[in-house]
């Protein structure tokens, strides 16, 4: 059952693919963004998983000699989460403006109207 040891990575792949599917296949702009969000979460999982050390604890130095997980990926992911939130906020704002000016958030409608313009 070696694959169970890397279960986290399988979940990462699954999440990434799910997100990608939503981005490509869904016509609703909000659903596309949900897909994007799932993808981002997948990446967060990847980073957190790689920093995990078996039997390690939280990386708080207290003078004792225990094994602890690598703190760096977690710090990186904090940054990445911030970036992800900003992107999402901006994208949602754009969707609001699209709704205002095109009257729809369905991809087919929007690009159809764009072609008319």
């Amino acid at each position: 059952m070696a694959w169970l040891g890397i279960l986290n990575y399988w979940i990462f792949v699954l999440l990434l693919m799910t997100g990608m599917y939503a981005i490509v296949a869904k016509g609703n702009l909000i659903k596309k963004l949900i897909g994007l969000g799932i993808c981002q979460s997948a990446v967060f999982l990847l980073f957190i998983s790689m920093g995990k050390v078996v039997g390690g604890t939280a990386p708080i130095l207290d003078g004792s000699d225990r094994a602890y997980s690598s703190p760096l990926p977690q710090v990186l992911i904090l940054t990445a989460i911030v970036v992800g939130i900003s992107t999402m906020a901006l994208a949602l704002a754009v969707v609001v403006r699209i709704r205002e000016s095109f009257g729809s958030i369905e991809e087919a409608d929007v690009y159809g109207k764009e072609a008319e313009a």
Partner: peptide, 10 residues
């Protein structure tokens, strides 16, 4: 200047 800006940006 036009609304296509939004769809292009998305």
């Amino acid at each position: 200047p036009t609304r296509t800006a939004f769809s292009a940006v998305f």
